[in-house]
Design a binder for these strands. Structure first.
Length: 114
DNA sequence: CATCTGACGACCG
DNA sequence: GCGGTCGCCAGAT
């Protein structure tokens, strides 16, 4: 199984915003759901600029073990993410992935006929 | 090949 | 809200 799609998706998460394993899995339709997203993140290649720290558990909880948990918290706070202990305030920082990519043209989009 | 092990999450007490 | 159980499934042992 190639985790590439997962990493590409994670790289789209803007600074200061976070995503959950569940929503990640759902967005990419990963078989096995959230846990599969977790496996992918656990295998995140280092040094590729992938913002792995922006992926959290349901309700914004940091689920990884030390010493990475502290690092993740630190990285998040460094980009302005407000946290309560090892939990992120999802109300403020949850990233809602855009359904459509930004449109450059101002012309109206064509309607897809049903 | 048999088991174990999670960077999960829904459920239940 | 917290801890335990269970389904999930690719890798590791």
């Amino acid at each position: 199984m190639s985790w590439d799609p997962v990493y590409r998706y994670v790289q789209r998460i803007p600074r200061g915003r976070v995503l959950t394993y569940g929503s990640l899995a759902k967005a990419l339709r990963l078989p096995g759901g959230a846990r599969t997203a977790g496996r992918a993140m656990a295998a995140t290649p280092s040094g590729k600029g992938i913002p792995w720290h922006r992926v959290l558990g349901e309700r914004g909880k940091v689920l990884i073990r030390e010493p990475y948990a502290s690092l993740q918290r630190k990285l998040l706070e460094s980009e302005g993410v407000t946290m309560v202990g090892f939990r992120v305030d999802l109300k403020r920082h949850l990233w809602k992935p855009p359904r459509k990519i930004a449109v450059k043209s101002k012309a109206p989009r064509k309607r897809i006929q049903k």
